[in-house]
Amino acid sequence: MVVDALAILRKDIRVELRAREAVPAMALFTVTAFVLFHFGFDRDRLDGDVAAGTLWVTLLLATVLGVNRLYAAEREQGGLEAMLLAPIDRTAIFLAKAAALLLYLVALELVAVPAFGLLLLGPDLVGSLPELGALLLVADIGLAATGALVGALAAETRARELIGPLLLLPLVVPLAIAGAQATEPLFTAPGVAENLGRWLGLMGLYATIFVLLSVALFDFLLED
């Protein structure tokens, strides 16, 4: 199963590297959003809870773009039928899609977080990078599972560009809560974390639940 998942993942990564569809769009979206936030708040530098909220909400909204593109190639060019014909476990398809989304998100954050530090963040970013990195990574695992499930749910509906985001956004509220709460002290005084373990624990719980749920439920989405 892992071998099959890796093969599908390799295909997705190759497509993304050649067509450059999802990640550049997500990165461009976040940078543009930061510019909008600058004018929206009319502030040159953000710190504390406003900075944490801006970063997390922007990243979560950018995830919506990635999820929308995650199954686009399969749907438009019949890739899913081909994969279903292949003698592989369906869970492998889910694992590959979730892993692809996880890689997209990590790639996005490698651009978006430094851009946020340069453009908007008041306090120094470098001091809080280890904590922020850990938070983002755990959040990304949960987001990847939720996104891969929601993307598959929405892909077969008539209004998929609407259903996908509307479904994903309420589902990621717990991650927004944990992310913003844990990042707020980091963006107030760099490197000073409060209750980091507790919020990481909540994100970990979220990731565990949604990975297990998605593995259990994904098969039913691909039955015909």
Partner: peptide, 19 residues
Amino acid sequence: VFAIAGAAFTVLNFVAVRM
């Protein structure tokens, strides 16, 4: 699938908001 994920989310979400 939506209903099952939604039920699990309902419980998780209460924990998160309460925290």
